[in-house]
Design a protein around this nucleic acid. Structure first.
Lengths: 348, 348
DNA sequence: CCGCGAATTGTTAGCGCTCACAATGACCTC
DNA sequence: GAGGTCATTGTGAGCGCTAACAATTCGCGG
């Protein structure tokens, strides 16, 4: 007969019902060998009947493992961080870990410290920080924490394990693509100075030009937003006819703003000015014109990040170098090549 | 003298160091009154010196509370779900709860069931499901789980507490805006049939037209993607000059595709056809032309969702109705009104 | 200077699980 | 049939904390 049970059943309850000891129940749940099939079946039936679920806290206390990882991130509504977050969670879950997230509005020393405390109180065994700003990386390096930390998207220099896409290579692909198409030089609209990825992309752009014997033109800066791209685009429009025929924009959102400003200034893309972005956000294919851009493999970043963190947690020597770089990929569309395919596959 | 300590210090270690009982340490940490200031100071100093941190699992086991909530979501790289996720985490953290996320690629019965199991194994006290598809809501209603569940963005009908933006009202705002601007009728590009929000927006559109004594024209369907909007836009372009002067598109991404298709067909926006979107993604302001759209207050959704879940967890009678609706807001831009302000504030 | 209530501190038992080890039984070999 | 081995199951001791209760101390009126 079913009576209301105030407390959820414990392992001992199940054991009693199945006529075994609690340890045998534990063995069944832990997939230990050396449990007779008949016994296992009896236990499983009791578990099923009573709707038993192993108590997380008791288990964690006894094993000293919570199997929970923390992630600290900011700007999680942007495509890049959101994709990274998704990839990290998926990779962690595949390894049997739970992920607790803290999304910050700003990665300051203070907010980071609070976030790590919060996660620490939550018993995480390690943390992945999506920290693209140098200042955030520095803060992280200073902060004391009782668990290993892996940084995604951050820069080198500090003594923390990092994973990220090879931004320098991405920028070389973008800039090289434009040079190969016959442009004499390539302008660059960079991201905020403090961002490691912005710096790496700018460096890749500069190095490619210099390797080709071209003096890099003036560098413009935006803040990743379409609005800042729009403003930079207005400025860029003023240089058309004075040597500007190609622009490498440090992300797709700013490229959107640039495209709009150019269009409003009567500048045609790609006939007058070719534009390349970075990220390959889903909308990029539908910009006017569809945007040539650099695609990052976030899923790979997530997998490597989690793998690295688990190595650290389990005290294994990290399987790879402390700095892991994932290769990006150039996606060519009509913003640099007028005959590139339409979104639905038909030529323009 | 400092020697390497293999195990992190326990409360008993701190107590010994401070010359008190572990219980007094617990009192200090728990902010209990009735601890003499001198004692408190001594304990705090010991904690500081030893770098003590309270063990999460032991605490959770003793209190039977993990103070952890779960969130199940899908499509977390899209603006809407990502914003909701962010808002939920922020609201939960403000209440002292940790959030564990599971991001699914598809919300099927099977994946949902696995997600709830995974969270359950992780000891969550309750779950918020971002489940915009009806099928997902139905699956959730069928699934047994040992904790309360609140649905965000889902529909009514089932016996689960829901929070969401009032989509019907949003659609009325959008459609009414177009009618007020003098359009004789408004076409609609809806989202996938299975999505509650798509259905509500379509219903709001239809109701507004009928209230105005207008027979709703043929309804088009997309899948939220820019590509599907592009295809629908090509079809819509064929109706220009045959009564089509205004379109309400069920989200901004599809609206982007529609705008592009119209432009390619030589149709001007807003002079020939006015377009309204839904969501107000950050890029919407930079579409060509800037998009009139409906803004949703995700932060409010997050707060109400968490509040509701905590009510359920703590056995309080829910402070509000089982179905909470947040009011959306119309944002007018140039896609419906040629004199709307430019992104940077200057008139066109 | 005793006694009483309030403030402060200590003691004892779990919370529900896993681990290490002990115990049981089945089966086999010589 | 004694002794040994292996597979299977049970027992006891924590894991590190909080909650309930017991004990101690302090201040102060009588």
């Amino acid at each position: 007969m079913a009576h209301t049970r105030l407390r959820p059943p414990t392992m001992a309850d199940v054991a009693r019902q199945a006529g075994v000891s609690h340890q045998t129940v534990s063995r069944v749940l832990g997939d230990h060998p050396n449990v007779r099939d008949a016994t296992r079946a009896r236990v499983l039936r009791a578990i099923e009947e009573m709707g038993y679920r192993r108590n997380f806290s008791a288990r964690a206390l006894a094993t000293r493992r919570t199997r929970t990882l923390g992630v600290v991130a900011s700007d999680t509504t942007l495509y890049g961080p959101a994709s990274t977050l998704f990839a990290l969670e998926e990779a962690a879950r595949a390894k049997g870990y739970l992920v607790s997230t803290v999304s910050l509005r700003k990665l300051t020393m203070e907010s980071l410290s609070e976030a790590l405390d919060h996660l620490s109180e939550g018993g995480v065994e390690g943390v992945v920080a999506i920290a693209p700003q140098r200042s955030a990386v520095d803060a992280l390096a200073e902060l004391r924490h009782p668990f290993p930390v892996v940084i995604v998207g951050g820069g080198p220099g500090v003594d923390i394990t990092c994973v990220g896409v090879d931004q320098h290579l991405g920028a070389r692909l973008a800039t090289g693509h434009l040079l190969a198409a016959g442009h004499r030089t390539v302008w660059h609209l960079a991201g905020p100075e403090d961002w490691q990825e912005a710096a790496d992309r700018a460096a890749g752009w500069r190095d490619t030009l210099e390797a080709a014997g071209v003096e890099p033109p003036m560098l413009l800066r935006g803040d990743w937003s379409p609005l800042s791209g729009y403003r930079a685009g207005q400025e860029l429009a003023g240089w058309v006819g004075r040597g500007l025929t190609a622009v490498f924009v440090a992300n797709d959102q700013m490229a959107l703003g640039v495209l709009r400003a150019l269009r409003e200034a009567g500048v045609r893309t790609p006939q007058d000015v070719a534009v390349v972005g970075f990220d390959d956000i889903p909308e990029a294919e539908f910009f006017a014109p569809p945007l040539t851009t650099v695609r990052q493999d976030f899923s790979a970043v997530g997998k490597r990040g989690i793998a690295l963190l688990l190595d650290l947690i389990e005290g294994r020597p990290p399987a790879t170098a402390p700095r892991v770089e994932i290769e990006p990929q150039l996606v060519v569309r009509a913003s640099t090549f007028p005959y590139a395919a339409q979104p639905d596959g038909t030529p323009l």
